[in-house]
């Protein structure tokens, strides 16, 4: 142990002792190097925390920055490779525009105000579709989970309709509604309805029967039983449905905007295709990716807040 004490540089020593995470070496103040011998036997509290936290609550500066940049390493590297290949002329502009060109297209459309308008239109369509379809799916899921009669009446029908790919309805929808807003609203609503219905129904069905009996014993009214026991019990499953529905929501919107629209991001991409503006087409893809990610982040945050009682969400 005395030989270890002779090291003046704590880093060298820490690297020599295997089994402790490297990331922690830089966190230790130099003046504490005298304690290293002991510390290597009993890792400092911070060390244990750092290992257990798994990115949840990193203990050191370096751990924070690494957790923050690591997920973006691959996308950034891809963009760099992509840009290099475009600059070298390996990839033709007609097939794939350079990232710089996409950024330029973004900037141009942002300044003209077109982009903001298109995003707002698409966002509004997506959200109203989610709201309408989601509400119907949620209400049906609750009703069929709670009431035997309602379940017998509608569940088989819903399960049957669910198996039809909702995008297969496009020809019919265009005949019904033309290419107006109703068509896109209808398709998006239909798309999000089923995942939310299925997961709500499943969630309600799987609420702990013992808790429901407990609620009855304590004289809860039906509404109170729903509010205090059934709904919170089904909530984790409902969130799964919501996040699944968000994916379907964007998918449906993209398809329906590409087929029949005169505004929105899908329309922007489709018009650009006609003029061979690949940079705008790619820009549309990037925006979809960002919006999709954003929706998921919001849903996750909502989930973490609403399910904070659940051990899986407690830090």
């Amino acid at each position: 142990m005395t030989t270890i004490d002779t090291f003046s540089d704590g880093r060298k020593l820490r690297r020599a002792t295997s089994g402790t995470p490297r990331t922690l070496t830089e966190d230790r103040p130099q003046e504490k190097s005298k304690d290293w011998a002991q510390a290597s036997q009993n890792p400092p509290k911070g060390a244990a925390d750092g290992v257990q936290a798994k990115g949840g609550k990193p203990s050191g500066l370096r751990t924070i920055s690494r957790a923050a940049w690591l997920p973006y390493l691959v996308p950034v590297a891809l963009v760099i490779v992509w840009q290099t290949l475009s600059s070298l002329g390996v990839i033709s502009d007609r097939i794939m525009p350079a990232p710089v060109a996409v950024v330029a297209a973004f900037w141009e459309r942002l300044l003209s105000g077109e982009l903001v308008r298109d995003i707002a239109v698409s966002g509004a369509r997506a959200l109203s579709g989610l709201l309408i379809g989601g509400s119907i799916g949620f209400l049906l899921g609750i009703a069929n989970g709670v009431s035997k009669l309602s379940e017998q009446l509608t569940d088989t029908t819903l399960q049957m309709l669910r198996t039809i790919p909702h995008l297969a309805m496009i020809p019919l929808v265009i005949l019904w509604f033309g290419i107006g807003e109703e068509a896109k609203l209808f398709l998006t609503s239909l798309g999000v309805l089923f995942p939310i219905y299925l997961n709500t129904y499943h969630g309600v069905k799987n609420v702990d029967r013992d808790l429901v009996e407990m609620g009855r014993i304590y004289g809860m009214s039906s509404w109170s039983l729903f509010r205090k026991v059934i709904f919170p019990g089904a909530l984790p499953s409902i969130f799964v449905g919501l996040r699944y529905a968000l994916g379907i929501m964007w998918l449906t919107l993209i398809v329906s905007e590409s087929i029949a629209a005169n505004s929105g991001i899908g329309y922007m991409a489709n018009t650009a295709r006609e003029f061979m503006m690949t940079d705008v087409v790619v820009l549309a893809l990037v925006i979809y990716a960002v919006l999709g990610k954003l929706a998921d982040v919001v849903a996750r945050a909502l989930e973490r807040w609403a399910l904070s009682w659940n051990a899986a969400y407690q830090v």
């Binding site: 013992d210 304590y218 809860m220 026991v229 019990g233 659940n310």
Partner: peptide, 26 residues
């Protein structure tokens, strides 16, 4: 009468105090 079961049957989404308050009824 009130009953206590072998399993506590607490509502996991309610705090301890709110769980106890369930016993007072609606």
């Amino acid at each position: 009468a009130r009953i206590v079961f072998q399993e506590p049957r607490l509502l996991p989404w309610f705090s301890v105090a709110d769980n106890v308050a369930v016993g007072l009824g609606d």
